[in-house]
């Protein structure tokens, strides 16, 4: 994924990490509440924990000494690296008060909502399966995908993905796109079975049976339909047919209602395609195997 620098991007928010120094039942009481607030927690104990990073650290200590102070903290057994952090005694405080206090502190110190108010739903590419066919790039109308410096497909803007929409994974011919929070396999990351691959192959075969250029055929069909409608015009029937097709597509691809209602307009799609076309060099655009398709090809 490429670097994210949009100030309105929820993924740019600073993070707060809590170091929790408490025992047994107290840890069990506090951890779920802190996690529910979207705060990462390092629980001390025997063994080692993740190496320190640049996140700001808040040290919650369930000890008698309840005074706030700045202390030298050694995170984890065997990690001699000392760090500075704010130490807060939490002895006697109930779990909800502690969790609320941490959240308030996060907001007060400019961390915003720890989770950024964003549901982390986005595609993850299994590069063991991906053939770089660019179907997903052509299909997604929200600008989630792009290509990296090596012209390899990349999830460039994960925060643009529409929550609960797995449609791009349904059009991937190689079962290479995962949504870890999806209900069903193999899209959720479960092992890809032979019948999953066969199903995708059938999609490809249908395309091949139609002459390999399904979009050209669709255009021809559209022209024939336009010609027919111009002779026997029935707007109501046309609208019903369009709604029926859209409903079927929505069901087939498991697209949520709110995603359909937020599709970009035809003008926006044309503008995106034009911008994309301008950014593709002539050398790239002459190679049909790697050239990204334009919105004309988008169903």
């Amino acid at each position: 994924m490429s670097a994210l620098s949009d100030p309105t991007n929820p993924l740019d928010a600073n993070r707060l990490r809590v170091l929790l120094d408490a025992e047994g039942s107290r840890r069990a009481e506090l951890l779920p509440r802190l996690l529910a607030q979207g705060v990462a927690v390092t629980a001390t104990g025997s063994g080692t924990v993740a190496p320190l990073d640049d996140a700001e650290l808040l040290y919650l200590c369930d000890a008698d000494d309840s005074a706030q102070s700045t202390v030298e903290i050694v995170a984890g057994e065997g990690e001699a690296e000392g760090i500075s952090g704010s130490r807060i005694g939490i002895r006697g405080l109930d779990a909800d008060s502690v969790a609320d206090g941490v959240l308030e502190r996060a907001r007060g110190e400019g961390h915003g909502e720890p989770a950024g108010g964003w549901t982390p739903w986005f595609p993850v590419i299994d590069y063991d399966r991906c053939t770089n066919c660019m179907q997903c790039l052509s299909f997604c109308l929200f600008g989630v995908y792009d290509v990296d410096d090596e012209q390899r497909i990349d999830v460039a803007q994960p925060q643009r993905c529409k929550t609960n929409c797995p449609a791009c994974s349904r059009v991937c011919p190689e079962v290479a796109i995962l949504f870890p929070k999806y209900r069903h396999g193999p899209i959720n990351g479960d092992q890809v079975q032979a019948h999953d691959v066969e199903r995708e192959k059938m999609k490809v075969d249908v395309s091949a049976l139609l002459g390999g250029d399904i979009y050209s055929l669709l255009r021809q069909r559209h022209e024939r339909a336009e010609s027919r409608f111009s002779k026997e015009r029935d707007d109501d029937r046309a609208l019903k047919e369009r709604q029926r097709c859209l409903k079927k597509l929505q069901e087939d691809l498991d697209i949520p209602d709110d995603v359909l209602s937020s599709l970009p307009s035809a003008e926006q799609i044309r503008a995106k395609a034009a911008a994309r076309g301008a950014s593709v060099s002539p050398a790239e655009s002459t190679d049909p195997a790697t050239a990204p398709t334009t919105s004309e090809d988008t169903p």
Binding site: M1, R27, A28, G38, A43, A50, A115
Partner: peptide, 28 residues
Amino acid sequence: VLHGLASSDLAFDAVPDLCELAARRDPA
């Protein structure tokens, strides 16, 4: 699982959501 881990003496890291960390490309 969380209760079992928390009730033990094991040091561990708990994150709200691994997907979110991955999207952030969290250095941790």
